[in-house]
């Protein structure tokens, strides 16, 4: 089954040229540079682009993982291996620590998620490590608030984003100037779509965690989304855990990562499924379903 979309993938070269250009601007304009690494495919693609942009030199970035503690084990192994292979510094900061210090309180109840708390941990890490730029894998096609995000997105001294007062971005001139205490988020793959990312992974033969392929795991259904089950998760009386062959379309915190039924064992099969699918990838993200402007609200206060 070959998708009818994207017979042609030549546009990927231009998207890659653009992303590499952005990576190099980041290297030139900032001091303490990290790539926000979640173990998800977008951040894996970012690392690959950074590797290409500075070859044969080592990439001038550390990897920063904000660990909610609710991980898929496979993701952590993958992360550690990648950092070792590339010989880059891996920084991990834990949401649990932020909760222990009383900087944020843990959400209670059935839908408890550490998604919001993550932003506090991230901003604390940015301050602690004097990070002036965090490169992220956000894409404008993911969600409507992201559609207006700049490549170089300014954050004030509170780490906040002001969507109504963003710096205009013209041609390929990126203004990363800032005052002390402020920082930037940079999104080199802003113009990529989900399918672009997958096709690029295929073309470049990039390794992914096994979670992206079909595997058997316990899952349950909540409000039309199938979620991976983990022992610490609270279930409603009507919710039932069962095993199924699934794959993850995005990988984030386990409490809010939707899974879809799949037999796809190869990248080609995954891509065929995605090209044929009728639901956006964030449609499976429980965190976005909380309200119409859920993403916009989280982004303003420092979310990824």
């Amino acid at each position: 089954m070959k998708s009818t979309l994207h017979i042609n993938d030549e546009h990927l070269r231009e998207l890659e040229d653009e992303a590499i250009f952005i990576m190099r601007e980041v290297a030139a304009q900032f001091e303490k540079k990290v790539i926000l690494f979640s173990g998800g495919k977008d951040s894996i693609v970012l690392v690959h682009l950074a590797k290409k942009a500075f070859w044969p030199a080592r990439m001038p970035f550390s990897l920063l993982h904000i660990d909610t503690g609710h991980n898929f084990e496979e993701t952590l192994d993958f992360r550690n291996d990648l950092a070792r292979e590339l010989n880059v510094e891996l920084l991990v900061r834990y949401v649990q620590d932020t909760i222990n210090y009383g900087r944020v309180s843990e959400e209670k109840g059935i839908n408890a998620s550490r998604n919001k708390a993550q932003s506090v941990t991230l901003l604390d890490a940015i301050e602690e490590l004097c990070i002036d730029v965090a490169v992220g894998g956000g894409r404008r096609d993911e969600e409507k608030a992201r559609a207006k995000e700049r490549f170089f997105s300014h954050r004030n001294e509170f780490g906040h984003w002001d969507p109504k007062n963003q710096r205009p971005e013209l041609w390929n001139i990126f203004n990363g100037r800032k005052n002390v205490g402020e920082h930037f988020r940079v999104f080199p793959i802003s113009n990529w779509t989900e399918l672009d990312v997958w096709q690029y992974i295929l073309n470049e033969k990039i390794n992914l965690p096994s979670l992206y392929y079909s595997h058997r795991r316990p899952i349950f259904k909540r409000n039309d989304v199938y979620l991976a089950w983990a022992p610490f998760m609270q279930l409603k009386p009507t919710e039932e855990v069962f095993e199924a062959d699934v794959r993850c379309r995005t990988i984030g915190d386990i409490t809010c990562t939707g899974v879809s039924f799949s037999d796809a064992n190869t990248l080609e099969e995954v891509i065929s499924e995605i090209a044929a699918t009728r639901v956006t990838e964030r449609g499976g993200r429980y965190d976005d379903m909380r309200s119409e402007a859920a993403m916009e609200d989280r982004k303003k206060v420092g979310y990824f």
Binding site: T4, L5, H6, I7, N8, R140, D141, K144, A147, K148, S190, N191, T193, L195
Partner: peptide, 8 residues
């Protein structure tokens, strides 16, 4: 706002 679509 940036929007994306593709045809063959």
């Amino acid at each position: 706002a940036y929007r994306y679509f593709a045809t063959p």
